[in-house]
Amino acid sequence: MELIDLAATPEGRHDFVDYLSKICNTLDLDYASYASANPVSGKVVAFTTYPDAWRDHYMQKNLHLSDPTLRSAARSIAPVDWSRLEQTKAFGNVFSQAHDFGLPDIGMTVPIRGPYGEIGLFSVTSRTAPQKWAKLKKHIIADLQLSAVYMHDRVMKSDHLLDILRYPALSAREIEILQWVAVGKSQQDIGDILSISPRTVEVHLRSSREKLSALTTSQAVGRAVSMGLIYPG
């Protein structure tokens, strides 16, 4: 397995590393990384906001082959706090080296499973004290889950073939609800119209937003209109 750093290529660098930096700023984190293997070509892509020196060292030493924040975390369905991996030998090996580069070992990896069984790994680290980390984690964990899948879907779609495979599959219910949103109905109204609870409406909307890689509902409506899935309101 060869680690390909898309951050060094002109088209990848801008969007994805920028996105990671923004997440760090917004959620009060120090560094963020993302890695995944392309399910078709098998190529590994990775982006990071880590300092260049550590990135180069990491790649040169092939640390991705043993790094438990990648290898172990890929086997969880939930975000993995790195404290859970501390006891492994590989953890000591990778993080004693990270320590030499002045990098923290407090962090978490969010594993993402995609529709083709591919796995994306979204990691963040923080320099805060362990007690503060526990609090911060609780506060940002849902945002991190959303950001991780958003980033993963974007990376996968940046591959031409996968982009075609990933045409958003919205259900009739999701389309119906987006259509009601487009004509200006509230979630409560839509729930009443369709005889379902407002939270069920919200769950369908959230699913539609994520399938359309939209961050807001109005963005999702805009995309659905442009794809001809619904009529403009």
Binding site: P115, A142, S171, E210
Partner: peptide, 24 residues
Amino acid sequence: TGPHMLSDVFYDILDGEPPLRSAL
């Protein structure tokens, strides 16, 4: 977000519709 029973096995429940997909 990945393979699961509603997407791959229980499609009768969904009447052939795609399942919900969300990070949350």
